[in-house]
Design a protein around this nucleic acid. Structure first.
Lengths: 331, 331
DNA sequence: TTGAAAGCGCTAACAG
DNA sequence: CTGTTAGCGCTTTCAA
């Protein structure tokens, strides 16, 4: 069906398209009489402005891309939700890209975003050669990921989160604590979580123990890695699990192996998504301010696009949420 | 910065813009010589076609909207993920709309989608007066929601899922089974889940018991409704929970109240998202084929847009996944 | 206070 | 096989 255009409105109202445009955008001088006439005609014809034409003309798509490994993961799922909400508030729309942490995917998306002329990009993914992003320095913000010196980053206070979690385990009497990390060769503030762990462990002269579980492998593989921890004597009495999914997988394995949490081993996760807090309420965890992360990333990016000066780094505080996996049942 | 356009390429290559366009789209006759010259220039100038201009001209945004209550919910989160994947496969992009099941939001989105000229809409939301959607009958497909007679719908075999779950509970010895439903006055195939329940219960001459938990209320309110079930004597020995989130909330409350699952009461959920299967592996549930739902919805919609004849209803089979909440620990 | 006309980047008749 | 030209729907000079 043929859509009604600004010309149709102009003709019907007996005015010029310029006048209609003026009414539409509330710009320039218009007599009330004209304005009303146009408004009525718009209503009558049920005219809906064509944003594609506007975008084309103004050279602004009003789309912001969010690149994440996968929205299937609760953390990125909720992040996505809040980013969309924040963007909508400012009249922008979300263009979601699931990179699956595959650099080829990510490059394809980058090309696509370029073609689509998205106005800006928020990166929460962990891949691709940083060089690719250099070309976009004036329209990128990252979340929990350092891309280049110049690209602003928004992150949680990962270091402090690591410390809080480790401290708590120690306070609860743990002396041999395992720290689960992600890919160590990806430079991300999430690594600071283990630095926080290390600092607390060293302060107490305990032993440091690590296992590495790359984020992008599938859940069965993660399970396998965790199970290997239990081969031979399982000697840890505390686990700082890096993220909540790992933490819960760990709980599952521990249960299967007949270990009692928190009696035999205490566990603290990281992220504290709403899904986890309701679906796995027994899990103690470090809660990231996901909604704020999203909001800060969005506002920082929009400021950047406006040419404003923005902070190179925004660090938001985390909070320890304690439950049964560290404290025993609270009944 | 000024972007390089097709004109720049044409000028530099010493050809007409038509020729460049032909190369770009691989249309019409071009000599290899020309083609190569153009291709080289494109490379040299690092020319990236402006999709906004193309969309504007072709009147196709290549965006498909997905309207869901909220991607925070694991089911819709995973659905969104798979819809994006399917769309990408066919060269389309996702425009995500979180309606929060608020009809005002949903109408605002509808207006926006109209302005943005999205090519089609997939509705997985549960709100808004159906009348609103009538204007889009030729470009809408719904998932698990009947909108109008003419709008194609893709759904799981909810009825059979309800039967399977109820049967299983009965087989396991339950005689007084509670069925948790959503909003009964929203017409959705999810209601067929309780019809399946009813049919099985009646076949066995047991008592029917219902509680209603609207989807859109927040999780604390859901918890409250569930807790009320436990006021006075809790008399059920089986629960068919409508969806997995409700099921897990139920498990949490039962545990808190000192009930043993599955000894005192057996529980079966519905949805079987990957999140749930890994984060709450003990939960027995009816698994929906989420990825297929997404894929069918996308292909049906794209066919519809091409003017092809499409099925008015696609029903995909579900599968019962049995675990500890019905069968006791499997150790 | 209003309108005519140019132009955003691209594709597609149409002509050569 | 290649180029000229018009036009997609809108906004914005510029002139009246």
């Amino acid at each position: 069906m043929k859509r009604v255009t600004i010309h149709d409105v102009a003709r019907k109202a007996g005015v010029s398209v310029t006048t209609v445009s003026r009414v539409l955008n509330d710009r320039g001088y218009i007599s009330n009489e004209m304005k009303e006439k146009v408004l009525n005609t718009i209503e009558e014809l049920n005219y809906i402005p064509n944003e594609m034409a506007r975008s084309f003309f103004s050279n602004q798509s009003k789309f912001i891309a969010l690149i994440v490994p996968t929205t299937e993961n609760p953390f990125f799922g909720e992040l996505t939700f809040h980013v969309e909400k924040a963007l909508a508030k400012f009249g922008y729309h979300l263009f979601i890209c699931n990179s699956l942490n595959d650099s080829e995917n990510e490059e394809k998306y980058l090309r696509l975003l370029n073609e689509k002329r998205v106005d800006g990009i928020i990166v929460g993914s962990h891949n691709v050669d940083i060089s690719e992003y250099k070309n976009y320095e004036d329209q990128i913000v990252s979340i929990e990921r350092k891309l280049t010196k110049n690209i602003p980053m928004v992150q949680s206070d990962d270091y402090n989160g690591g410390r809080l979690a480790t401290q708590e385990l120690i306070t609860q009497g743990c002396t041999n604590i395992l720290c689960v990390t992600g890919d160590k060769n990806v430079e991300t503030p999430a690594n600071d979580r283990s630095i926080g762990y290390v600092d607390e462990i060293e302060k107490n002269n305990y032993r440091k123990n690590f296992i590495e579980i790359p984020f992008q492998i599938d859940l069965d593989e993660k399970l396998k890695i965790i199970k290997e921890t239990f081969q031979g004597d399982f000697k840890y009495d505390g686990v700082f699990a890096g993220d909540d999914v790992n933490a819960k997988l760990f709980l599952n394995v521990a249960k299967e192996m007949g270990y009692d949490v928190p009696k035999d081993v205490k566990v603290i996760g990281f992220d504290g998504t709403q899904s986890i807090r309701y679906l796995v309420p027994e899990l103690s965890t470090v809660v990231q301010p996901i909604e704020n992360l999203a909001y800060e990333a969005v506002t920082t990016l929009l400021d950047l696009l406006k040419g404003k000066k923005v902070k190179n780094e925004v660090i938001l505080p985390v909070e320890l949420y304690l439950s049964e996996t560290t404290q025993g049942s609270k009944k």
